[in-house]
């Protein structure tokens, strides 16, 4: 056995990774080679020191504090995510509602720019946004309550119900905006 091979074997032998035959060959080399004997001794010394080194323990209440910090951090992260989802969702819903209004009242631009029209429509737009925000909050609260359901089989049922509620809501908006127009038409005729 040459020194290079002996050092290679030592690296495995220290963890018990050589056969008895290889071990005997290594020992035979070590007895003949002073440099390798020195390396083997150093490896054994460091191995023993590391094997007997203690495990360092954390402060007594560390586990409780760490668990609480993790749960809190996760909650903060979810709240932030919820806020972003709520904002984007509400804006999209309000835009959808506005589109519904424009669809229901094609004369929207004429009415908007008529005397007093701006004030009236500002109120309408505010109601739309507030409505969208309210709907968004309701959805988010429901998601919060049914968080565990999100990963379960009822998730898509919930989504379908939400979609239906959204369509119903938009239909209501459409009808509510359409109604005054009909009345105006009726009075005119």
């Amino acid at each position: 056995m040459k020194c290079d091979e002996a050092v290679e074997r030592m690296a495995l032998a220290i963890d018990g990774g050589v056969s008895d035959q290889e071990w005997d060959r290594l020992q035979a080399h070590i007895q003949m080679c002073q440099a390798c004997a020195q390396t083997w001794l150093m490896l054994q010394q460091v191995d023993r020191v590391l094997r007997t080194a203690p495990v360092v323990e954390p402060p007594p209440d560390f586990a409780r504090r760490a668990a609480r910090a993790a749960v809190e951090a996760n909650r903060r992260c979810q709240n932030l995510l919820g806020g972003v989802v709520l904002l984007i969702g509400s804006t999209l819903l309000a835009l959808l509602m506005a589109a519904t209004v424009i669809l229901a009242r094609p004369d929207f631009v004429l009415v908007f720019f008529a005397p007093g029209g701006v004030v009236q429509w500002q109120r309408t737009v505010r109601i739309l946004f507030e409505g969208a925000l309210l709907l968004g909050r309701m959805v988010w609260a429901l998601v919060g309550v049914w968080q565990s359901v999100l990963l379960g089989p009822f998730f898509w049922l919930l989504v379908a119900m939400m979609a239906l509620a959204g369509v119903a809501w938009l239909a209501l908006v459409y009808m509510a905006v359409r109604l005054p127009q009909r009345q105006v038409v009726a009075v005119r005729s």
């Binding site: 032998a13 220290i14 018990g16």
Partner: peptide, 18 residues
Amino acid sequence: IPADDARTSNPRADRARV
């Protein structure tokens, strides 16, 4: 450095301990 560290047997036998 530990004083007694001469190993003469293959640590393979007590690998589980390692």
